[in-house]
């Protein structure tokens, strides 16, 4: 069910902390404690180094691709307290913007849905969350939520730009009434939901279930169903799935996906929002899927280090 189709030797000189494919799955961005960000062209199973981005002065924690309609843009955040937005122009990658508004390590960056234009959320160990928006005159507008999480924010993730229940309720032709929302997780063991009201960011919900640092949060992509879903994972080894059915977004219920024996570092939803990849401190990745009766079941263990053990059929690999 899970087969390695490409193994990219990044030649990073220290630990890799994040690897993200672009929108089309053609390029791979990686970042490392060696302070660099690298971009590889991985089309057709290849691994051509396209760019080696230097500019951070500390380990780089995360990278995030902007929607391609804004150009080829990558954001990175680092322990050096900086967020750098990189842009490719005429085949060359360069710094587009450097944000130095945080007082401590910036642990997470996440681009908002393209419907909102280029907007980046950044969560920092200083407890604040910054929202960077590219304005019409090519300036970056900064809004900051101070003390979002005491002693640090570890993760941010945007809500999809859908009005809950849009497939069902939305009268056609009417402009959708999107609300900008995102979720964050922090060292105060809390998962918090934020939403923009009259241009101001406000804490919308505070979800309590974890008993230790929340390491990552992931808002599931919407497939048009009225339910909002968020996954959160923690130092306490627990992964919770939060769901909200009510259109106002006020009532969230937590369901324990699993209690692992080790810290859970990362959660990631599949593009269709039905599979969750959970990465744990034991270096294991597990895939989870919700069954018809609403129970979450582990459908696969992804073992590391096996290399390309099996090839994929021509149909699946055919990328011409």
């Amino acid at each position: 069910m899970v087969s390695v189709i490409n193994t990219v030797d990044t030649s990073h000189e220290d630990m890799i902390h994040d690897a993200q494919m672009d929108y089309y799955g053609t390029r791979l961005a990686t970042c490392s404690s060696d302070r660099t960000v690298k971009i590889f062209d991985v089309r057709n199973g290849g691994q051509i180094l396209v760019a080696d981005l230097r500019g951070h002065e500390g380990p780089v924690w995360q990278v995030a691709w902007a929607h391609p309609m804004f150009g080829n843009i990558l954001a990175s955040c680092s322990y050096d307290r900086k967020v750098i937005i990189w842009k490719e122009e005429n085949g060359a990658w360069d710094k587009m913007y450097e944000y130095t508004g945080h007082e401590s390590s910036v642990n997470s960056v996440c681009w908002g849905p393209y419907e909102f234009g280029p907007i980046l959320a950044c969560g920092s160990s200083d407890g604040a969350i910054s929202l960077l928006t590219l304005t019409g005159d090519q300036q970056w507008d900064v809004k900051k939520i101070s003390n979002a999480h005491t002693i640090g924010c570890n993760a941010v993730s945007w809500a999809p730009a859908v009005v809950p229940g849009s497939l069902i309720d939305q009268p056609s032709g009417q402009k959708p009434n999107y609300v900008k929302r995102f979720v964050s997780g922090g060292c105060d063991n809390l998962v918090k939901l934020w939403k923009e009201e009259d241009g101001q960011w406000k804490e919308d919900q505070k979800l309590e279930a974890h008993s230790d640092w929340v390491r990552d949060v992931g808002w599931a992509p919407s497939i048009g169903l009225p339910t909002s879903t968020i996954a959160s994972c923690s130092q306490d080894g627990r992964v919770f799935i939060w769901t909200c059915d009510d259109p106002a977004g006020n009532t969230w219920t937590a369901k324990l996906l699993h209690k692992f024996n080790d810290v859970v570092w990362h959660v990631s939803w599949s593009i269709t929002g039905n599979i969750l990849a959970v990465s744990g401190g034991d270096n294991k990745v597990t895939l989870w899927k919700e069954s018809m009766d609403g129970q979450w079941a582990c459908i696969s263990d992804v073992s590391k280090g096996q290399g390309a053990v099996s090839t994929i059929t021509d149909t699946q690999q055919n990328e011409q």
Binding site: D18, M21, P59, H266, A277, G281, V285
Partner: peptide, 20 residues
């Protein structure tokens, strides 16, 4: 705070995972 792992989904059912 040095995240050693992280598997993320990408387009087309691809899963990108790190190995350190």
């Amino acid at each position: 705070i040095r995240r050693p792992v992280g598997a993320s989904f990408a387009f087309g059912g691809k899963l990108v995972s790190l190995e350190n």
